[in-house]
Amino acid sequence: MNCWRVGNLIAPFIDGELDEAECLAIADHLEQCDTCAETVEAVAGLPDFERVSVDPEVESQLFEAFDTCLAQRIAHSLLSEDDEELAPTGTFGTLIRRELKVPVALVAAYTGVVLLLGGGILLNYQRVDDLQTAVSERDAIIDTMRVRLADAEAGPNDSFLAAETGADTPNIVFLPAGTNGTGLPAAAGTTVMPASFQLGPANGTAWRNAALESPRVVH
């Protein structure tokens, strides 16, 4: 056990959170090292942590109101997420804006997915382009062959070959299958927003009832 290690274990040593072997090792070190012994002594002599003493009456008023306010907030969080008219102002408004952060994050995630899909579509287009190039090259070769063939045989087959290697051939190779993916953001938006409703309890539960029956404390 060295000084550095003892310095890292002072708190658990004093709090009795170490096993016997570690305690003994530290005790051994403290017998030989005055610096560490002094530090441990000073830390052990720290006064207790105390909580600010609030007038019990003030405290009970605060926590009585706590439950009422909480019930209201929960009710509002259940009711007003998709209803701007019901969305309260002030602290509730802040709360609901915070609540909305989760759907916003999800929408952002979906946007990311859509962008990725879009990237995929672009890649597909790129591949189609490559294929078209390849087909044109093939066509060029066929053309050359045809010319050579015509030269060699002088046969009147121009119309047949022209029909088979026409310019419209590449267009029927691949259609970008992902174009429908652009419908995703809207679909994502509508499914994400009401998620917290599904998490909430059924109508008429204690917290919701408490909220709806109790007088308003926070406006």
């Binding site: 003493s53 003030v58 002030g90």
Partner: peptide, 19 residues
């Protein structure tokens, strides 16, 4: 500015003072 807790204002002030 965005806050308007009316009922508990006194309690909050008392605790802030102690704090």
């Amino acid at each position: 500015l965005g806050k308007s807790t009316v009922v508990l204002q006194e309690q909050h002030r008392a605790i802030d003072d102690v704090m």
